[in-house]
Design a protein around this nucleic acid. Structure first.
Length: 258
DNA sequence: CTTAATGTTCCCCA
DNA sequence: TTGGGGAACATTAA
């Protein structure tokens, strides 16, 4: 479910209800949800809720934090209606409840004592010059690069395909052969795409819902993601699908040149 | 029954 | 060291 715009939408929806609150108790119902001791979170006060790439960080005043990786189907909801897929439940002093639902269980929710593993720069913060320099330091396919969280943090399969379409770059194009001008165009496409997706509260293509359980709206503006066989909105050529790094990859063979 | 799905992570090979 | 291939994790939907 989660890429940067979805994680950002969730975080914005959680802040008012969580920041300043104390965790009264917690319950855990799955393996990838820590800790063994349900009381490990009890009594901690939440200082801030932040996004780190596509992950959600709940910082406590004592320096510890809960790190939520949403995986493919993870959801954080301010609600009380547990489902068979509810993997964790945090009860706040305010009486509010935070549920972590995750159908496929690729996600995790863990108490961490130190900052999470370091990832690449945030795509909304990196400068165009830095973006180009980092891109040129690599030798791989553009699609792989965008999915690499140590290159940039937060882009996933949907936004990688959509950004490459907007920039007119073939997903298998090599980083080494990309001109500086096209690299800059890609940077600009990424920034605009993510900002527009955040404005529409993310993309709901299957399971994604925000902290209130509501779907996003950006899926209506997708140009290529899962559109194979349909005409390209720019040129009419049929959208193609291939596989890169075991991920379905969608592009317009006419608009996106290597 | 097969394929694909918003993501990692680990192992193996070049 | 970097890059690429493939399996694995668990579950649903077409």
């Amino acid at each position: 479910m989660p890429e940067l715009p979805e994680a950002e939408t969730i975080v914005r929806g959680l802040r008012a209800a969580l920041e300043g609150q104390r965790i009264a108790s917690a319950e855990f119902f799955a393996k990838r949800v820590s800790p063994d001791d349900p009381d490990a979170l009890s009594g901690r006060r939440i200082r801030a809720v932040k996004r780190y790439g596509k992950q959600v960080l709940i910082d406590f005043e004592d320096g510890a934090a809960v790190l939520v990786k949403l995986g493919m189907t993870g959801a954080l909801r301010l609600a009380n209606d547990q489902t068979p897929y509810t993997r964790a439940r945090l009860n706040l002093d305010s009486g509010a409840t935070l549920l972590f639902d995750d159908i496929r269980q690729f996600g995790s929710l863990r108490l961490i004592a130190a900052p999470p593993a370091k990832l690449g720069p945030d795509p909304l913060e990196i400068t165009a010059d830095d973006f180009v320099a980092r891109l040129r330091a690599r030798d791989t396919q553009l699609k792989r690069l965008l999915l690499d969280q140590t290159f940039l943090r937060g882009i996933g399969n949907i936004y990688a395909d959509e950004a490459l379409f907007r920039a007119g770059i073939h997903p298998k194009a090599r980083t080494r052969r990309l001109s500086a001008a096209r690299a800059r165009a890609l940077h600009e496409a990424v920034v605009r795409l993510l900002q527009e997706a955040i404005e529409l509260r993310g993309s709901s293509v299957s399971d994604y819902v925000d902290a209130e359980g509501k779907k996003g709206g950006f899926q209506l503006l997708h140009n290529v993601y899962r559109k194979h066989g349909q005409p390209c909105p720019r040129c009419g050529h049929l959208i193609a699908r291939t596989v890169i790094g075991q991920r379905g990859t969608h592009y317009c063979p006419a608009c996106q040149k290597a």
